[in-house]
Amino acid sequence: MELIQIQEDFEPKVVAFLCNWCSYAGADNAGISRLQSPANILPIRVMCSGRVSPEMIFRAFRSGADGVMVLGCHIGDCHYINANHRTVKRMPLLKNLLGYVGINPERFTLDWVSSAEAPKFARVTKSFVNTVRELGPIAAEMSVEPIFVTDELVNLAAEELVGV
């Protein structure tokens, strides 16, 4: 019962890396247009979505973010011509990697929001915050007891290592 109570009160912290040339302006635009976007978003302005290195996203999670968004310019609209081509290759790999170590990949999203797309900014932030809210706090997910040697999974790993 108590756990459910916590879940209902839970307000996720979401770090959003916003491209200076599009989504940051899009967020401004959403504000000017009086479009509601969730207050859970902690925006970080970067010069390009291609500038967001995987280290930054890992650090956001380490610092307690329940979710991380990267919002950039549409492909072809990049201020630096093709920098977001790297983003679109790098981020899906990172998303899968998060899944491989056990962080739900739903906690990470990449999307394109141009400076004119204020309604889209409101929509993607709202839906992402809702997704993360349903997933619950990341601290609860990470505080699970580690599975040590007794588990058969680790034995499998050990078998693989022995036999040199």
């Binding site: 699970v144 599975i147 790993a157």
Partner: peptide, 16 residues
Amino acid sequence: YAQIPYAERWAFWKAQ
């Protein structure tokens, strides 16, 4: 690997 739930993956790697 695909069959292992996320919580178990995290527990596994945490131990490692």
